[in-house]
Design a protein around this nucleic acid. Structure first.
Lengths: 322, 322
DNA sequence: CATATTCTTTGAAACGTTTCCAAAATAGTT
DNA sequence: AACTATTTTGGAAACGTTTCAAAGAATATG
């Protein structure tokens, strides 16, 4: 592999000059530039980005740390994140933690060693204390204390919206169905908004929550179905949970939406080929992704960020289940 | 940031010694090791992986170049690839090309500059000439000439299997439905296997193919539906195409599987919550991913590879559409 | 105890860049 | 022509590691 030195030799100039040609920095006479460019051509020289990163003590690598790229919500997010990063010449490193605390820490450590420029983190655990100050980090849907800026959909409004839509669709006794995740997760606001709106409207609601993760789905749903036979509307905390409920309800002879209206959260279905098409609170995935990256850029450049949490509006997407 | 030099100073030894402690290379007396370890502790030193990569002239970064991580088939693949890479301490860089030739080349160039250890490529274009010899590459589902090892599901057998299953399900006039992709794509073997098996069994088949990409889906399906009313079985080249067909057929009053049996290819549905549950030829995604990475490891280590193409067996997965 | 042998440590070079200061070349002014 | 001011170039240091030859220390051998 030809190096900048070889180019300098062939062109009969100093390495510094070649560097200036490559980077368009500093003045260099047209004739010198031509000589250098010819040498570059002839030697098939390409700059060594690793050496450059090393020398500059910074890279253009951003890491995305999430539970699993297999999850369609995350893969859509990753798609837009990569796209936004590429616009500024940044690269994306992908880390699947499986949501396991030890793996999250392991990756965080690795990323530090690799001196990534920044991290977008979607973690199940509080990483506030395990993340060094010298590496900017933005989280999605997780709101920690200080260092970490959070981008999230407006979960609270989403919860309110879900309740209103269920009521509008005719539900008299709606239920919130979810799991109790980490206290740092913004998703609990979905429940809060839901409950608050119910109080405002004077609607009676059921809250059904079990500790996360739900290992025994059968038990989870059986308990709900036997205990809450009078519920006629469901706001499930994710689309997958909504779909899972509908499938089981069907087997119990419950029809959706005739007997029970169902609204999910996420809006992961981008193809209308599979049924039921869920009514759902759609997260603005693209906006969240781009916003997260732009905030990260600001942090990387050392600009102060006004807000701790950035909430992006959600919309209701009508499907076949309300 | 503390460097190895600071550690050496504090511990009162030479940098080389610290290096040997960190890497467990060469002999170092227990007492010296302790001193060094204490200094590391005290300074909160962590090795600079970038400097290491630079010095060693190699990194543990592998790039995955694909059209879009949003596609569920690719996101599952990426999941297993990352998992397999992580087992050996490799990291994954994700590049979405959108299938655009210029973007594929742009990324290839960038990866070269960044001296990645290897590439897993799923490209729409012939990259054989644009990939340097010094960087190992394995492709998935694309079979080029020499340099690039290919991992693929056994498309040919998949095609044969699909035909047999359609016939078994009662189809008298099955059709192959697809699009003509690059000549390098292994997917055309799905058609070949399908046709060959039909000939062997003496079954009359319809081949319906349009140039890729299909821009006007309406036209694509309308033409098929009007011209091939006698078809009673479909082997669609992907699950998405199968799902799309079923949706449109339904609107035309065609029932699946009563009137037409449908088999897809991929097996992307991992949750049985959405209907129809497709009958499909399931690609062994996990095996393909792990195989690709292990072949890449061999290439990285300079081991000669016996085979050019590695075909992994597929299985038929019964759904609701046959 | 002297010497040979083995084990451990040192110190410097090298990896490919960028950047900065000084030197050289050129241009501009009298 | 002699200066000065400006533009362009050269050369070296620095970034944080690894590695290797050589020196130094410890241990074994007779």
């Amino acid at each position: 592999m030809a190096s900048i030195k070889d180019v300098a030799n062939l062109a009969g100039v100093a390495v510094g000059t070649v560097s200036r040609v490559i980077n368009n920095s500093g003045a260099v006479k047209p004739i010198t530039r031509r000589k250098v460019e010819e040498a570059i051509q002839k030697l098939n020289y390409i700059p060594n980005e690793v050496a450059r990163n090393f020398k500059m003590q910074k890279s253009k690598m951003v890491a995305l740390l999430l539970p699993s790229i297999w999850n369609p919500f995350f893969s859509e997010l990753a798609y837009y994140i990569e796209d936004e990063l590429d616009r500024e010449g940044f690269k994306l490193m992908l880390c699947n933690s499986g949501g396991k605390p030890e793996k999250e820490l392991y990756y965080l450590d690795m990323l530090r060693q690799n001196k990534v420029a920044g991290i977008v983190g979607i973690t199940y655990n509080d990483i506030e204390n395990n993340v060094s100050n010298d590496i900017p980090i933005v989280s999605i849907d997780r709101h920690f204390n200080k260092k970490i800026t959070c981008v999230t959909s407006d979960n609270y409004e989403g919860g309110r919206l879900a309740l209103r839509e269920l009521v509008k669709a005719g539900s008299r006794k709606p239920a919130f169905m979810g799991s109790v995740t980490s206290v740092f997760s913004e998703t609990m606001n979905r429940r809060k908004g839901f409950v608050h709106e119910a109080q405002t409207l004077g609607v009676d609601v059921v809250i059904y929550e079990k500790p996360d993760p739900i290992v025994d789905e059968d038990a989870y749903f059986n308990e709900f179905l036997s205990e809450h036979g009078d519920v006629d509307g469901i706001f499930a905390i994710t689309d997958m949970l909504a779909a899972s409920y509908i499938e089981r309800a069907r087997k119990h002879g419950i029809r959706v939406p005739e007997d029970v209206k169902v609204i999910g959260y996420d809006g992961i279905q981008d193809h209308p080929y599979f049924h039921p098409i869920l009514s759902t609170i759609r997260q603005p995935v693209e906006e969240m992704a781009r916003m997260a990256i732009r905030l990260l850029y600001n942090k990387i450049e050392g600009k102060p960020l006004e807000q701790q949490v950035h909430r992006i509006p959600v919309i209701f997407k009508q499907g076949e289940t309300t």
